[in-house]
Design a binder for these strands. Structure first.
Lengths: 217, 217
DNA sequence: GTCAGATACGTACGCCGTACCTAAGTCAGG
DNA sequence: CCTGACTTAGGTACGGCGTACGTATCTGAC
C-alpha cells in the first residue's frame, strides 16, 4: 500500500488539535479522526504517543522564524529570543511539551544554534558562552511558561489570578499584593525588559579568572 | 466515620511516589495503595486528580527553606533563588507540575513573596520590581526544567545527550557542537553564574523614563 | 502473473479517572 | 443508652486512553 500520509501531515493536524483543544484534546483517536483514519494507522508513522509529542515539538520548533545574522550580535540575540517568544505565544498549549521533551532533532536545535551563534559573535566562548546561552534560553522558557501556559487553566475571569492573589494576600504577602495589580496592568513588555536585563548582565559580568581566554566586549 | 488521613499524609505519600516512580507513577490507585486504602476513598479528601497534583505542588513549595532576610538584598535574592533551586533539585520529577500549575496557595506563594521582598529591599518598586521579579523567577523555572527535568527521560548513558547532539551536529550546528562537551563537563555551576548575570543586569539596567519613581541603587 | 513487503485498520486488553452507591463508624439530643 | 443524622470508607462499573496483535489490502519487481 502506498503511504496515505506524510509525517508533515501528522505534525500539522496534531498541532492544530493542540492549538484548538489543548494538550488533553490530542489523543491517538482524535488525531486519527482528524486524518479520517483509524487510530492504529498512526502507528505506521509514529512509534508511540510519546514519539507523537516529540513530533509536535518539532513542528513548533520549525515555525520559529530564525532571523538572518547581522553585524550586531546584541540585536541578533534579541531577535532570536524574540522569535522563540513569538512562536510560543502563537502556540501556548504546546509549551509544556516543548519544555519537557528533549528532542535533539534538527528542527528543535536550529533555534538553539542561532542563539548560541549570536552570543558567540559577541565574543563569548567556552564556559562563558555556555552560561550565557543557558541563561537566555532558561529565561525564554521560563517566562513562556509563566506568562502563556498559565492562562490555559484559568477559569474565565481574565484578571482572576490577580484577584485571587489579592484575596489570599491581605497583610501576609505584602510585596506580592503590591505587585499583583501592576502585573495585571503591565502584560506584554516583561519579556522585552527582562531580556534587556539579561543582555546587560551578560555584557557587564566579568568572567571569573578560571574561564578567561580571550578578551570580550 | 473518623477521617483516616490528613491532607498532609496524602501530600507526603503522593510526593514520595512522584520521587520514586515519576509523574506517570502517580495514579489514584497507586496513591491509594500506598495509603492502604481504595482509590475512591481519596475523593473524600481531594476533588480530582487535578486537585491532587496541586497538592503535590503545594508540598514541594512547602519544602523550600526560605532564608531570613538580612541587610544585604543581593545576598537575600540569591539565597531565595538558591533555595528554590535546591528544592527543585531534590524533587526533579515534580518540576513539570510546579511549572504548569497556578496554585495560588499560601505555601506556593511564600517563596515568591520572599523573592519579591528581597528585590524590593534593593530599592526596586512598581514596574521595575515586577520585571526583575519575573526575570529571576523565569530563569529559576527555566533552568530547573532544562537541567533537571530533562534527565528523567534519558536512556541510560549519562552523557548521551552531548553525544547525540554531536552526532546530529557535524558541521551543521557548529556552535552547539562546540558547546556540547563544555556543557557536559560543566554541570552544576550554570545556575549560580546565570543568576550572577541576571543580578548584575538588574543592578545595571537603567529604568526607562516612564517607570522612574525613586532613584535606586 | 505472482509474490514479498509495506500499509491500513479492526478487535481487544489493561489501566486510567471517576460517577454512583452502600455499608460502616461517629456523635448529639433525648 | 438509644437513635437518627451525618461523615467517611471503599466497592462496582463505565467510558476513554494507549497500544499489542492479527488480518486484509494494496503496490512494485521480476
Amino acid at each position: 500500500m502506498r503511504a496515505r500520509f506524510t509525517l508533515a501531515d501528522i505534525q500539522q493536524h496534531a498541532l492544530a488539535i493542540v492549538d484548538r483543544d489543548g494538550l488533553v484534546g490530542l489523543t491517538m483517536r482524535s488525531l486519527a479522526g482528524s486524518l479520517q483514519t483509524g487510530a492504529m494507522t498512526l502507528y505506521n508513522y509514529v512509534d508511540s504517543r510519546e514519539a507523537l509529542e516529540e513530533l509536535v515539538v518539532d513542528a513548533v520548533s520549525a515555525l520559529v522564524e530564525i532571523p538572518e545574522p547581522t553585524d550586531d550580535w546584541l540585536a541578533d540575540t534579541r531577535a532570536v529570543a524574540t522569535a522563540l517568544w513569538r512562536t510560543f505565544r502563537a502556540h501556548p498549549a504546546a509549551i509544556p511539551l516543548v519544555l519537557t521533551r528533549r528532542t535533539s532533532s534538527r528542527a528543535s536545535l536550529a533555534p538553539a544554534e542561532a542563539l548560541a551563534a549570536a552570543l558567540a559573535r559577541g565574543g563569548l566562548d567556552g564556559v562563558d558562552l555556555f552560561v550565557a546561552f543557558r541563561t537566555v534560553s532558561a529565561f525564554v522558557m521560563g517566562i513562556a511558561q509563566n506568562e502563556l501556559a498559565g492562562r490555559l487553566s484559568h477559569e474565565k475571569d481574565p484578571a482572576s489570578a490577580a484577584q485571587r492573589i489579592e484575596g489570599l494576600t491581605q497583610g501576609v504577602l505584602p510585596t506580592l499584593a503590591e505587585l499583583a495589580p501592576i502585573g495585571a496592568a503591565f502584560t506584554g513588555q516583561e519579556f522585552e525588559r527582562g531580556l534587556t536585563i539579561i543582555l546587560n548582565g551578560i555584557q557587564r559580568t566579568p568572567r571569573p579568572a578560571s574561564s578567561r581566554r580571550t578578551p570580550h566586549v
